[in-house]
């Protein structure tokens, strides 16, 4: 028999992590304040990889880990472009992905925004001149904000999201 008291006496499964970053908190608070001005209560982002080296995906995923946990700032990553305000594109656009990139963008409801993340997405980066890529994301989509980096850190990506929210509310 399990003693019901043990539920209260055993160690808590929620622990405090010691990594509060004041700079991040301040940035998050700003974003939290700006988002409702134009996007309702939250900003829905659809991530799309058009030919990255996967490091940018890892940094974007890291935004969801407990160190950053950006959902508390009103940012959510959604599964379908139909639910998205923002398309966040990583990687130079490859010929093999170009059509899928266009279709994903077309599937988004208006108004819609595009963020290019990483050097390759910004202007083709090290893939410039390759037969296999069209170049940066702006070759096929209207890009609102570019976040350079190889790859940009989670905080830099968050700053880019903030820049977009500011731009959209103007």
């Amino acid at each position: 028999m399990v003693n019901p008291l043990s539920f209260f006496l055993r160690p808590k499964v929620t622990e405090t992590f010691e990594f509060r970053d004041e700079e991040l908190e301040a940035l998050g608070a700003e974003i939290r304040k700006e988002i409702p001005k134009i996007f309702g209560h939250s900003l829905a982002i659809r991530e799309l990889d058009s030919g990255s080296d996967n490091s940018t995906e890892i940094e974007i995923s890291n935004l969801g880990n407990p160190h950053y946990d950006v959902e508390r700032f009103g940012i959510s990553f959604v599964a379908s472009p139909r639910h998205a305000d923002v398309l966040m594109v990583t990687g130079a656009v490859t010929l093999n992905m170009a059509e899928a990139v266009k279709k994903t963008y077309e599937a988004m409801p208006h108004p819609k925004y595009v963020i290019a993340v990483g050097d390759d997405a910004c202007d083709g980066g090290i893939y410039k001149g390759s037969y296999a890529v069209l170049g940066g994301v702006d070759k096929i989509l209207p890009v609102d904000v570019k976040i350079p980096g190889n790859p940009p850190s989670p905080k830099e990506i968050l700053q880019g999201i903030f820049a977009l929210v500011k731009k959209a509310s103007k």
Binding site: T94, L95, N96, M97, A100, I126, G129, S130, A132, V133
Partner: peptide
Amino acid sequence: FYKHRGIEKLAEGKSPSECVVL
């Protein structure tokens, strides 16, 4: 192969130190 970026072709004619980023 949706992400085929042409890395091997890009390496052609580069010096080894330039190739490390690839």
